[in-house]
Each structure stands twice: as structure tokens, then as C-alpha cells.
């Protein structure tokens, strides 16, 4: 009994979302502004997913797809109008204050730090708010400051920090209390390439070492490629894809491209499983499904033609996602 109980609890997802729904009432003017009608807008509907402890999940979608609405329901800022949501076994909107101790939230464009005060003072206040024990606080602060290279900035007022430094400060602020889940909303927005790289490295290490679960919304697909094994794509308020990043290609019907440089110009090559998209002198572009193996195609080309060089182009993930968005239709996915 106790064994099965503990097994079940070990497997219970940290974040559990089922048939989640959120509508907003929007007042709209009609008849040239003379009449106002109430419209109900579905911001999120039929949303179901779960996240196990320790996962790093990318949550992506176009503007207005329902990403922030979902995050707000997961943090308890917004009450769902339907369905079920639980995080760490708690109902976010009902147990908001209790849940706050167990999660960390970073809004990329809004700082939680106190503008006129040195970073250190903001951190000290958070220690008190979250009632972090002095020893744990000292440990965590020391570690994050070292990993995020904030040592020189601790005594600088936040208003004098660069965007990258401020973001690292915000992330430290969200992690001092050892949250089980970290929600990151556009964490790399506006950062330069070096800062982005360092931040991703840090998040990966955090997940490796502490098993912190990460849910990341972003427009930067490199964030996803660098960090997330799994992506959830949301569009028009519901999930249109949930699975490994690589699988997006299959789902998006994307294709890989085999670039063949022949020794001489030739008519379009004919091999099974691939079609020629473009011919330019001796160079030809053959496309084949992303989930198919390149080997038989390469072998077939090499067997029938004089090949000078071969290369394979992976599909552009952004194109794939654009394709998914444009389809839009919320077809249920296994």
C-alpha cells in the first residue's frame, strides 16, 4: 500500500493541466460606437498537458496564442474558467501564497528588483519574504552569484545595471528559495549573443544539478534548441503540438534537403524517395521527408551519377513552426 502510494506520487506530474479553459469577456462597440456588446473570447481551451519533475519544456506560440494566460493560470494570478490545473499538488489560484514558495517566476520584460537599491538589498528582502534560512540563503546566493558572474554588481543599484546583468539578477531573485519549477517568460529578450549563451548554459546546469523543472516561453527558437527536449506549441488557445523538438519536423510535414554537386550539368536526377526542387548548373536540390533516412537516397544518387560533392540541409525550425501556425486547426494529437 505504502509502496504503491509512493510510486504513484513519484510519477505524479509536477504540472498537470487538463481541459483547461479560460474565456475573457470583451466589450466591443458596434454601430459606429453607439452600442456596446459583450463578447466572450476563448483565450485558452481544451488545453491538456503534464510536465514531470525535472523536465525542460519550451512553450511556444505566436503572440496572443494564450501563452501568458496559461502561465498566469499556472502561477495562480488568473483563475481558470474551466478544466483542471494543479502544480506541485496545489490548486494555483486557491493556494496561491503557498504555491509561491515553491515556484519561481521571471518575466523577461519586467524586473522584480527594486530599482534604486543595490541587488544585494533586493535579495535580502526576498530572503525574508520567502523565509529562507540564513545558511541556505548564503549558499544559494554565493552559487548563483558565481555562476551568473554577478559578484561585481551586487552593490550596484539596479538602475545602473545593463539589461543582461539585470536579467541575471532577476533569475537569481527567482531561484534563491530553491523553487521546484521555474517559469521563464522571454528570458533572453533583448540580450546579446554572449549573454544569451551564458544564460542558457546556466539554466542547463541548474536543471542538471538541482533537477529544477523549467517551463520557458520564448520567441527565440535557439533557446528551445539549446535547452528543451520537449516543446509544446500553442496556437489559438490550444496545443497544436506536444513532443520532442525533432518530432516537430514530422508534424510540420517538413523536409530535409540533399544538395548534390554533379561533375557535369545534367537533367534532374531521378531517385526513389526524393524529388528535385531546383537545378542550377551542376548543382541540384533534392528534398525528402525529414523522418526518412538520407542514406538510401545518397546511395541511389551516388550509384547512378558522377557526384562531386554532397551535403544535407536540415529543415529550418522556424519554417516548421510557421507551417504549424498557419495550419492552425486544433487537430487532436496523440
Amino acid at each position: 500500500m505504502s509502496v504503491t502510494g509512493s510510486v504513484r506520487s513519484a510519477q505524479a506530474p509536477l504540472i498537470d493541466v487538463r481541459d483547461l479553459e479560460r474565456t475573457f469577456d470583451v466589450r466591443r462597440r458596434v454601430d459606429g460606437g453607439r452600442r456596446r456588446v459583450r463578447d466572450s473570447v476563448l483565450a485558452v481551451h481544451d488545453l491538456t498537458f503534464s510536465v514531470q519533475a525535472g523536465e525542460m519544456v519550451g512553450y511556444i506560440g505566436p503572440n496572443g496564442a494564450g501563452k501568458s494566460t496559461t502561465i498566469k493560470m499556472l502561477t495562480g494570478i488568473l483563475v481558470p474558467t474551466g478544466g483542471h490545473v494543479s502544480v506541485a499538488g496545489l490548486d494555483p489560484s486557491r493556494d496561491r501564497v503557498e504555491l509561491a514558495r515553491r515556484i519561481g517566476v521571471v518575466f523577461g520584460q519586467r524586473s522584480t528588483l527594486w530599482w534604486d537599491l543595490p541587488l544585494r538589498d533586493s535579495f535580502d528582502l526576498l530572503q525574508k519574504m520567502y523565509r529562507i534560512s540564513p545558511a541556505r540563503y548564503r549558499d544559494n546566493l554565493g552559487r548563483f552569484v558565481e555562476l551568473l558572474d554577478l559578484g561585481d554588481q551586487l552593490d550596484t543599484p539596479v538602475r545602473q545595471l545593463s539589461l543582461g546583468q539585470r536579467m541575471r539578477g532577476d533569475i537569481t531573485a527567482a531561484l534563491l528559495h530553491d523553487p521546484e519549477v521555474l517559469y521563464l517568460d522571454e528570458p533572453t529578450i533583448g540580450l546579446d549573443v554572449v549573454s544569451k549563451g551564458r544564460l542558457r548554459e546556466f539554466l542547463r546546469a541548474l536543471n542538471d544539478e538541482r533537477g529544477t523543472t523549467l517551463l520557458l516561453t520564448t520567441h527565440d527558437l535557439q533557446d528551445i534548441e539549446a535547452l528543451c527536449d520537449r516543446v509544446i506549441v500553442i496556437d489559438h488557445g490550444t496545443s497544436v503540438y506536444d513532443g520532442p523538438l525533432a518530432g516537430l519536423h514530422v508534424e510540420g510535414g517538413s523536409s530535409r534537403t540533399l544538395v548534390v554537386d554533379l561533375v557535369d550539368e545534367a537533367p534532374p536526377v531521378e531517385v526513389p524517395g526524393a524529388t528535385v526542387r531546383r537545378v542550377e548548373g551542376p548543382r541540384q536540390w533534392l528534398s525528402f521527408p525529414a523522418d526518412a533516412s538520407a542514406a538510401p537516397i545518397v546511395a541511389a544518387v551516388a550509384a547512378s551519377y558522377d557526384v562531386a560533392d554532397l551535403s544535407i540541409q536540415e529543415p529550418d525550425i522556424e519554417d516548421v513552426i510557421r507551417e504549424l501556425y498557419s495550419r492552425g486547426a486544433p487537430e487532436p494529437l496523440g
Binding site: 502561477t75 495562480g76 509561491a100 518575466f107
Partner: peptide, 8 residues
């Protein structure tokens, strides 16, 4: 919103 994510 930020205040709502703090345990106070």
C-alpha cells in the same frame, strides 16, 4: 502580477 507570485 509580480506581487501575486510572492508568498506575502
Amino acid at each position: 502580477d509580480q506581487m501575486l507570485t510572492k508568498p506575502v
